[in-house]
Design a protein around this nucleic acid. Structure first.
Length: 998
RNA sequence: GCCCGGGUGGCGGAACUGGUAGACGCACUGGACUCAAAAUCCAGCGGUAGCAAUACUGUAUCGGUUCGAUUCCGAUCCCGGGCACCA
């Protein structure tokens, strides 16, 4: 009886679905476990082998936990709003809802073939009104709340109004983010008002003030504006200052935007990291992103000006080392302070910066800047300090201005050197004149009242002094900015907001969901507004025309899975109390700071309102690595012609094998001659007048070929010729220098490169491609993919076998054979092709039980610590050992089957039933490991001399140091290495090793 | 540029807390079975020298700590991810 994986897998997938074995209830006497994957964006390209890596890992863990007696929630859904669907709509005129629906169907059919234990009755889709109704609802709660810094939590806006009516905003100053719209009345008061003033404000002013406190608020922000495309572009759609599509110029444009006041949660987001099980790297990334730093804001008075220049610095101790000031090109002082003679130069510079993305400004090594002509007065030395304008200072960070201390800061140093600004040394020998030294350990020099102090200690002293003389204040600064929460797009959640007389009013809860209306064109509205601005019925109601960004739905979707069909609430409190936090969340590091921080914030917010009972969404996070594509290349000979207009079309395409190309790249002359000769031989054979051709030089260009027509690195020449009619008669210069038409058995070797896996790079490998049909329902293409070729069980185990889940690695299909062989071998423990059933009911012996229990221990430990690759090897080792022992005993095989079921559920369920069971293997109990079967009395100790391994001696495990020394010194190999010399000491680590030091 | 991660045979990787480097698998080589092929089984497989026993060498590079370093520390190089409108 053969292992017929296709039949087995189809049968059990059907059966499981019929029996509803994956259906999960919200109440159970069992302990709960919530295992979640980051849900996919259903792209048109479908699933490739990189997607399921995390899903398989979580699936194994979920199945394992089920065997361990847990009630496991393991859902899946779709993050279905997004830019690509809208772009596709613009290009093909297909409504995003339609293309998204199709993509989801395709994803689902692919996912189903891999045998996941998802409870599909809980599927969520962020673009469905039933889902986004609650995204809108949560947004309205954010809009209706402010962050009370006194109580450190979100509270209703009514409470704030009550506070204002009683005592103005004395105790609750404006949060002061970067993006608010300033109301002129409010501006006059410099942000402070008392109860009487509050009551005297008109409706508009009151709302403007409240807007400055709301957790979801409106403000102004800069976007990448492309006039030619008439649209706002994402950062990755802008390359070198021009649009990726079409290469049109892109400039910054200020538009009204929605923001989330995530900065108010900065401290709690930071603190919360102490209570979650994320990797240190992940915590570090989030910590750095939040970027909490301590320092001071310092006012520098400007020569001949009323206003002062405020800088933020973390190093007020270096204030005497300030040699110049730098302000961001967007700083509102630029205009005011630029002097006449520098005006033209500054204007030119500002224009240049307009075309630069923030990324470019941060990453460029080139130093740019311009002198404004203005000077600040140093508050202590009274020296004049020049004010420069440079793109390396970002308006969004700190105050958008810095005091530059070249001897202590590398970027300031480079800037000073570049523009020949004299450098003051305040750290003596710590500064060598060549490189800045950011030390805090130097004793300060040339530093007035700070002279002789250790820098570390001087920070506080400096702040005190600065506060004393009233030129600044101690301050905590965050690098994190408020989250931009609107997009000028169609395919996203509409905001449930109506604008009347410049005031934003929320829709009533009964009016939700505010459905996304149908549009005929996805073109942006006037002035860069979203496509919704083109709909008269929409604008007549004065509805907000922006839509929410991609991360809106994903910020809370994990809660919806708990209670996906609830029409009264986003999630019943009973359900969220039962399922509580996600016990295991698996997803890519690319979401390290975006999605994870936003969903952590939303969770804290919902917790503040008492809507859920926990304030961190994910208890444990595992980051899966990326599976990269391994691209393949062929190398084509190009022709140079002597005469213009001469025809090269008649000449054949010639492709050169990689080894020869490599020789040429290495300037190897023989390689060059070999190729030239081969090319000329081929051309000679076509008997044509080649006088128009340059026959001494044949440049070679590199071209991608689809990985599926390359076996490893060897090109399948026939498939290649079929691929493209141009190549039908292509000729090949093979690896050994021969020509394909004369040596049809020779090999053409492709070049390789590891890149992102993507359709455009022809390097995607798909686990499953559904069959294709024509209009009449006739099948035009069979289903295909690794799952069809090797089976889902093999595919699942191979993905895990590739290496640790956390690590990125290139995909290589080659090794899948090995895992497939293992499953066949495992099957042969039970059934033989000739003899049929070979499993028996005999009593196992110690050696067999030892194999079993060793494997239970290893697999359990490895699964618990997400080391799935080593667990797969453990199964292989067990199978090899049992085969060697000729063990076919049910008593050993049955527990092994349960052990393997999370990894390869189909084959295990089939064998489970063949062993005579009628219930499902999926809900059995995980076998118990028993130490007694592994007990050993002795060990082969490695014996080293001076740390070098020389021999092994089998020594009893319960033995003293003195006895070991005696045995070891008596050993002939050891005596040879001692060579009569006395030993200095003998290191004996019980159960590990022995080392003799001479 | 900044932040985070990674670098071990021809390849994917193992070595979990500083203790036998290369488990397991792929590829490759030789052999068995077969008319043949597939499948399966057996043996070999980091490099250098040697028939072998064995010796030297070897975990990106350089240096350090240690009886002992793939593992800890310092410096350098290379690759991947993120950097706020891709998801």
């Amino acid at each position: 009886m053969e292992y017929n994986f296709n039949k087995i897998e189809r049968y059990w997938q059907d059966q499981w679905s019929k029996d509803g074995v994956y259906h999960v209830e919200n109440n159970s006497v069992k302990p709960k476990c919530y295992v979640l994957d980051m849900f996919p964006y259903p792209s048109g390209a479908g699933l490739h082998v990189g997607h399921p890596l995390g899903y398989i890992a979580s699936d194994i863990y979920a199945r394992y936990k089920r065997l361990k007696g847990f009630n496991v929630l393991h859902p899946m859904g779709y993050d279905a709003f997004g830019l690509p669907a809208e772009q596709y709509a613009i290009e093909h005129g297909i409504h995003p809802a339609v293309s998204t629906e199709n993509n989801i169907k395709n994803f689902r059919s692919q996912l189903d073939k891999i045998g996941f234990c998802f409870d599909w009755s809980r599927e969520v889709n962020t673009s469905k009104p039933g889902f986004y109704k609650w995204t809108q609802w949560i947004f309205l709660q954010l809009f209706d709340c402010w962050y009370n810094r006194k109580t450190q939590k979100a509270e209703r806006i009514d409470a704030l109004i009550a506070i204002f009516e009683k005592g103005g905003n004395q105790n609750h100053p404006v949060p002061d983010a970067k993006f608010e719209i300033r109301n002129p009345d409010f501006e006059i008061l410099k942000g402070h008002f008392n109860a009487a003033q509050w009551k005297s404000f008109d409706e508009k002013t009151k709302h403007d003030i409240l807007m400055e406190y709301r957790l979801a608020y409106c403000g102004y922000g800069e976007v990448n504006w492309c006039e030619a495309l008439g649209t706002v572009l994402a950062n990755d759609e802008v390359i070198n200052g021009v649009s990726e599509r079409g290469g049109h110029p892109v400039v910054k444009k200020t538009l009204r935007q929605w923001y989330l006041r995530i900065t108010e949660y900065a401290d709690r987001l930071l603190e919360g990291l102490n209570h979650v099980d994320f990797s240190d790297a992940m915590k570090e990334m989030q910590t750095n992103w939040i970027g909490k730093s301590f320092g001071a804001n310092i006012q520098f008075s400007i020569l001949h000006a009323q206003r002062t220049l405020e800088v933020f610095t973390t190093r007020p101790d270096t204030i005497y080392g300030v040699d110049f000031m730098v302000i961001a090109p967007e700083h509102d002082l630029v205009n005011e302070i630029t002097t006449g003679e520098h005006r033209a130069e500054v204007d030119k510079y500002i224009e240049y910066v307009q075309s630069r993305s923030e990324r470019e400004r941060m990453s460029d090594k080139k130093i740019t800047g311009v002198f404004s002509g203005a000077y600040c007065i140093h508050p202590f030395t009274k020296k004049q300090i020049p004010v420069w304008i440079s793109e390396y200072v970002l308006i969004g960070y700190g105050t958008g201005a810095i005091m530059a201390v070249p001897c202590g800061d590398e970027r300031d140093h480079k800037f000073a050197k570049h523009f020949n600004i004299p450098i003051t040394n305040i750290i003596g020998s710590y500064y060598n004149g060549e490189e800045a030294n950011p030390t805090k350990d130097a004793l300060l020099e040339n530093s007035g009242f700070l002279d002789g102090m250790l820098m570390k200690d001087a920070i506080e002293t400096a702040i005190k002094k600065i506060e004393e003389i009233g030129i600044g204040k101690q301050r905590v600064n965050f690098k994190m900015r408020d989250a931009a929460f609107s997009r000028q797009r169609y395919w996203g959640e509409p905001f449930p907001i109506i604008w009347k007389n410049g005031i934003a009013y929320p829709l009533e809860e009964q009016e939700l969901p505010l459905q996304l209306p149908h549009v005929d064109s996805y073109k942006p509205g006037p002035e860069g507004e979203g496509p919704l601005a083109n709909i008269p019925e929409w604008t007549a109601r004065h509805l907000e025309t922006n839509t929410m960004p991609g991360y809106a739905g994903s910020s809370w979707y994990f809660l919806r899975y708990m209670d996906p069909h609830n029409e009264k609430e986003f999630c019943d409190r009973k359900a969220s109390d039962y399922w509580n936090q996600v016990d295991l969340y698996i997803g890519g590091t690319e979401h390290a700071v975006g999605h994870l921080l936003y969903s952590r914030m939303w969770t804290k917010f919902l917790f503040d309102l008492g809507l859920i009972g926990f304030d961190e969404p994910y208890k444990k996070l595992v980051n899966q690595g990326m599976i990269q594509g391994s691209s393949r290349f062929v190398y084509r000979v190009n022709y140079i012609v002597n005469e213009p207009f001469s025809k090269t079309e008649a000449l054949p395409f010639i492709l050169v094998s990689y080894g020869l190309v490599k020789k040429i790249e290495e300037n190897n002359e023989t390689g060059r001659t070999q190729v030239n000769k081969a090319v000329l031989d081929i051309l000679d054979a076509i008997h044509q007048d080649l006088s128009f051709l340059n026959v001494t030089e044949f440049p070679i260009t590199k071209h991608r070929v689809p990985v599926n027509i390359v076996d490893g690195i060897e090109l399948d020449i026939n498939s290649f010729r079929i691929l493209n009619s141009n190549y039908a008669n292509a000729e090949f210069i093979l690896e050994d220098g021969t020509v394909y038409s004369k040596n049809p058995n020779g090999k053409y070797i492709c070049g390789t490169e590891v890149e992102k896996m993507s359709k455009s790079k022809f390097n995607t490998v798909s686990p499953y491609n559904p069959p294709e049909f024509d209009k009449n329902g006739n099948k035009t293409k069979d289903e295909s993919g690794l799952v069809i070729q090797y089976g889902a069980d093999t595919f699942r185990m191979y993905e895990m076998f590739l290496g640790p889940v956390e690590m990125s690695k290139p995909w290589d299909t080659k090794g899948i054979e090995g895992v497939h062989r293992f499953l066949k071998k495992f099957w042969r423990l039970f059934y033989d092709e000739i003899k049929g059933r070979i499993w028996d009911n005999e009593k196992p012996v110690d050696a067999e039980l030892k194999v079993l229990h060793k494997t239970i221990k290893k697999v359990e430990e490895d699964t618990e610590r997400f080391s799935f690759n080593t667990a797969v090897s453990a199964f292989m080792i067990a199978t090899n050992e049992l085969t060697d022992l000729k063990c076919h005993k049910k008593e050993v095989l049955e527990p092994l089957l349960i052990l393997l079921a999370p990894y390869a559920p189909h084959i295990c369920e089939e064998l489970w039933h063949l062993l005579g069971h009628t219930d499902t293997i999926l809900v059995q109990s995980f076998p118990r490991f028993e130490e007694k079967y592994l007990a050993e009395s002795s060990k082969d100790y490695p014996i080293s001399v001076n740390g070098k391994h020389r021999t092994t001696i089998n020594i009893s495990l319960d033995i003293t140091q003195a006895e070991v020394e005696k045995i070891v010194l008596a050993n002939s190999v050891v005596q040879k290495w001692l060579d009569g010399k006395p030993h200095k000491k003998i290191i004996f680590v019980k159960g590990k090793m022995v080392n003799i030091v001479i």
